[in-house]
Design a binder for these strands. Structure first.
Lengths: 119, 119
DNA sequence: ACTAGTGTTCTATGTGCATAGTACACTAGT
DNA sequence: ACTAGTGTACTATGCACATAGAACACTAGT
């Protein structure tokens, strides 16, 4: 995985894990890689990997059993919170961004969206 | 202006100035505030303000006359580059974000956009 | 010449991020 | 008991960011 500069790596890893949760790749209760394996998987330092789980646990995204490992939360409500939060953020960023470009009504935004081709 | 954490201030100021350029608030050749005045306007350190202009000059967004001040570029083509770059980035972020949420075709994205109400 | 207003450069301090390396504590299985 | 695999904690280093403060170089106007 490639990381953007000017953005903490541990936050980008958390975003990727959240994305995989929403995508169904990480079901509730699923065991996450060990701190050391996560470090290998993302090519980051074990301390940074540890921070990923520490921050995720504080967000109630996962829980830890000392000596056993770290596991995705078993609460389905958290999944819905992540999903709705990501959707709202994505839509809000788009709308404000397009407004800054002069597209003030949704119909104008839709026209730009339909004309958009990824490269 | 409020700054997000986990994102360099000087980059956020540059983004704001680019936004104001595209919005027509800063026409080509317009004189920008002095380093010290910019620091006051955005409530940042003069050194950070200096960095804003230094980075902007490297991006050809402005030019500097020592002893006179810093001025917005006089090249209209730069404006179009900024505008198209911001538009492309905004659209790409939206499309990839929505795809991560399971909306793979544009019609589904449009439905979400139309249902979106800002709070 | 003088002054005020510019950008520029320098040292110094503090913080957060990321890395490297080591050591410790807990759990399950043998 | 022992071992392997887990999370945790600690020191240390390097870098980018942001701030504070001071000094210098240039330009326009007087």
């Amino acid at each position: 995985m490639e990381f953007e500069t000017n953005k903490p790596i541990y936050l980008q890893v958390i975003e990727d894990i959240k994305r995989r949760m929403v995508a169904g790749e990480l079901p509730p209760g699923e065991k996450l890689p060990s701190v050391r394996d996560l470090a290998v998987a993302y090519t980051i330092n074990p301390n940074t990997a540890s921070r990923v789980y520490r921050e995720m646990e504080q967000m109630s995204l996962c829980f830890t059993r000392r000596g056993l490992g770290t596991f995705i939360t078993e609460d389905p409500a958290v999944y819905e919170q992540i999903r709705s939060g990501m959707a709202k953020e994505c839509l809000a960023n788009f709308v404000t961004g397009m407004k800054h470009l002069g597209y003030h009504d949704k119909q104008a935004m839709i026209e730009q969206l339909l004309a958009f081709q990824e490269n």
